[in-house]
């Protein structure tokens, strides 16, 4: 399988006048095209930071990052925005929908950033909302939706730009078991269709859905404890 994401010796420190925390320490990782990887670990272990860097949403202090063998230049806002709006898409634990936008306006955000014409955008938005079973809520605002529904809207938003890699930060963290099951179902379906998924979770049961499970603790990725997940790629 072709490597899609590769990080080498990545480190990240959060420091302020009162705080110094090594969030990531010399982390290296490869993710192949079509893989479903879960990263598990305790709170504060560095998994969300790792995912943010993989999504080009945060910058490392040291190390190199390659997407499709192209090294990420953290100073090139043009390259970063191209990756964020194209190859990579992130689903946040807190959904991060814009509260004063309707569902369709939230979902089409990535398409708007790529200057796709409105008619084409609407076609894609409708298709994505149908895929996640949220088409009937297209004109609603986020505060009119349940947590599970908001997460599905966030998934639709991430899928709109047809990303190669879906990065999900605790996608079921704010959901009840029923909604969590539905969201995982969507992930499985996406994976079966060939989307590469990197998911961060603290729940081993959820992580068990992935092909490969990695543990991160104290900012160190333990590559020796690589566990095969229960879900096999079709």
């Amino acid at each position: 399988m072709r490597q899609i994401l590769r990080i080498e010796n990545l480190s990240k420190v959060y420091s302020s006048a009162t705080r110094y925390q090594m969030a990531l320490c010399d982390v290296s990782l490869c993710v192949s095209e079509g893989e479903f990887v879960a990263i598990v670990g305790p709170s504060g272990g560095g998994k969300s930071t790792l995912l943010s860097i993989l999504g080009c949403l945060d910058t490392p202090d040291q190390g190199r990052y390659f997407v499709f063998d192209e090294e990420v230049n953290w100073k090139s806002s043009k390259q970063l925005s191209r990756l964020r709006g194209g190859v990579l898409a992130t689903i946040f634990q807190g959904f991060e929908l814009v509260p004063h936008w309707t569902v369709s306006e939230n979902v089409e955000l990535g398409l708007r950033m790529r200057s796709i014409p409105k008619r084409k955008r609407m076609e894609i938005v409708i298709a994505m909302l149908r895929k996640v079973g949220m088409l009937h809520n297209i004109h609603k605002y986020p505060n009119e939706l349940s947590g599970g529904e908001q997460q599905r809207v966030a998934i639709a938003r991430a899928l709109c730009t047809a990303p190669k890699v879906l990065l999900a930060d605790e996608p079921t963290g704010n959901l009840d078991p029923e909604n969590a099951k539905e969201v995982l179902g969507i992930f499985r379906s996406l994976h079966e269709q060939g989307t590469t998924i990197v998911m961060v979770t603290h729940d081993m049961e959820i992580a068990g859905q992935a092909q490969r499970v990695l543990r991160i603790q104290g900012g160190r990725l333990d590559n020796s404890i690589v566990t095969g997940g229960s879900h096999d790629h079709a």
Binding site: S77, K78, S81, R84, L97, G110, M113, R114
Partner: peptide, 16 residues
């Protein structure tokens, strides 16, 4: 701030 972060997360450029 949050809204700006969401914009940037989905491909907004600095110029935009």
């Amino acid at each position: 701030r949050k809204e700006i972060g969401i914009y940037l997360s989905f491909g907004a450029t600095r110029i935009s």
